[in-house]
C-alpha cells in the first residue's frame, strides 16, 4: 500500500487571464479515497479536467502510475486507467441504460457479449438492473448519476474521478452511494478522487481531504483536521460544521 498513484505537481491553468488553478499540488495514494472540496469557483472541476485530459495545464505536471499524463487526450487518459464522471451528467440519451454501460465495458473487452456480461454485473452493483432496458433519457437525475458511475466503472479504472455524484441525492440515496464506493474501495482496491459538496458523504468516505480556494490549495489533511482548520472554516465550511 501507500504507493503514490496520482501526483499533481504545481499545476496552473488560466482562462482568458482568469487564473482558475494556481500552482496546486497534491497526491493520491493507491487504494485511498481522497476528496477535493472548496467553494464554488475554487477550481475543482478545472483540476479534474486537467487530470482527465480535457485541458492541458499551463504549468506543472501530472503523473499517474509513474508516467506523465498531462497533455494526453481524454481517451488516452482513460486507457491509462482513469475513469471519470461528469458534473453535468452526459448519458448517451438515445441508448438504453445497458448499452450505455456496454460502451464503457468495451474499453477492456473487444466483444460485445463479454462487455454485456461485465455491464450486467456493474448494473447490479449500482442497483440499475431493473432499468437496464430503458432509454437513458427516461432516467431520473439520481439514476443518471448512478449511470455516470456505472459507465466509468465499466472501463475498469484504477483511479475513479467522481465529480459531484451526490449532488441532488436524498440522504438515504447518498448513504447508498457511499456504501457502493466503500465496497468498491475495500473489495477491488479502487482508488477514488472525489469532488463533493455533500459533507455527509465526504466525511464518511475520505481518508484525506484537500481544500481548494480561489485556485489555491489552502489545506490538506484527514477529515478531523480539516473540519478544525481555521482557514477552511472561514472560507467554506462555516462554524456550525464543527
Amino acid at each position: 500500500m501507500a504507493d503514490t498513484l496520482l501526483s499533481v505537481r504545481a499545476i496552473s491553468k488560466s482562462f482568458h487571464g482568469l487564473r482558475a488553478i494556481a500552482g496546486a499540488s497534491f497526491e493520491v495514494e493507491e487504494g485511498h479515497i481522497v476528496a477535493l472540496i472548496g467553494p464554488n469557483g475554487a477550481g475543482k472541476t478545472t483540476c479534474f479536467n486537467m487530470i482527465a485530459g480535457v485541458f492541458v495545464p499551463d504549468e506543472g505536471e501530472i503523473r499517474f502510475a509513474g508516467g506523465r499524463i498531462d497533455g494526453m487526450r481524454a481517451d488516452q487518459v482513460c486507457v491509462a486507467g482513469i475513469g471519470r464522471t461528469f458534473q453535468l451528467v452526459k448519458p448517451f440519451a438515445g441508448l438504453s441504460v445497458m448499452d450505455n454501460v456496454i460502451v464503457g465495458a468495451l474499453r477492456r473487452n473487444k466483444h460485445v457479449d463479454v462487455a454485456r456480461r461485465k455491464a450486467q454485473t456493474i448494473l447490479d452493483q449500482l442497483g440499475l438492473t431493473q432499468k437496464s432496458d430503458q432509454p437513458a433519457s427516461a432516467l431520473t437525475l439520481p439514476d443518471r448519476k448512478r449511470l455516470e458511475v456505472a459507465r466509468a466503472l465499466a472501463t475498469e479504472p484504477r483511479l475513479l474521478l467522481l465529480d459531484e455524484v451526490m449532488a441532488g441525492l436524498r440522504p438515504t440515496e447518498t448513504d447508498q452511494m457511499v456504501a457502493i464506493f466503500r465496497n468498491l474501495n475495500r473489495e477491488q482496491g479502487l482508488t477514488i478522487l472525489l469532488i463533493e459538496h455533500v459533507m455527509r458523504a465526504v466525511m464518511a468516505l475520505s481518508k484525506e481531504i484537500h481544500v481548494l480556494h480561489h485556485g489555491e490549495l489552502i489545506a490538506s489533511g484527514s477529515p478531523d483536521e480539516i473540519v478544525r482548520h481555521p482557514a477552511v472554516l472561514e472560507c467554506y465550511l462555516g462554524e456550525e460544521t464543527v
Binding site: A52, V54, R73, A74, D75, C78, V79, G83, R84, F86, K90, P91, F92, A93, G94, L95, D99, I102, V103, G104, L106, R107, K110, H111, V112, A115, R151, A152, A154, T155
Partner: peptide, 26 residues
C-alpha cells in the same frame, strides 16, 4: 451496429465528450 465499432459510433453520436472520456478515440 452490433460490434464495438457500432457501439462506439453511437456513443460519439450521442455525446462526443462522454465518448472520449470512456476511452474512445473519436
Amino acid at each position: 451496429l452490433h460490434t464495438r465499432i457500432g457501439y462506439y459510433w453511437q456513443a460519439i453520436r450521442e455525446d462526443p465528450e462522454a465518448a472520449q472520456a470512456l476511452g474512445i478515440n473519436t
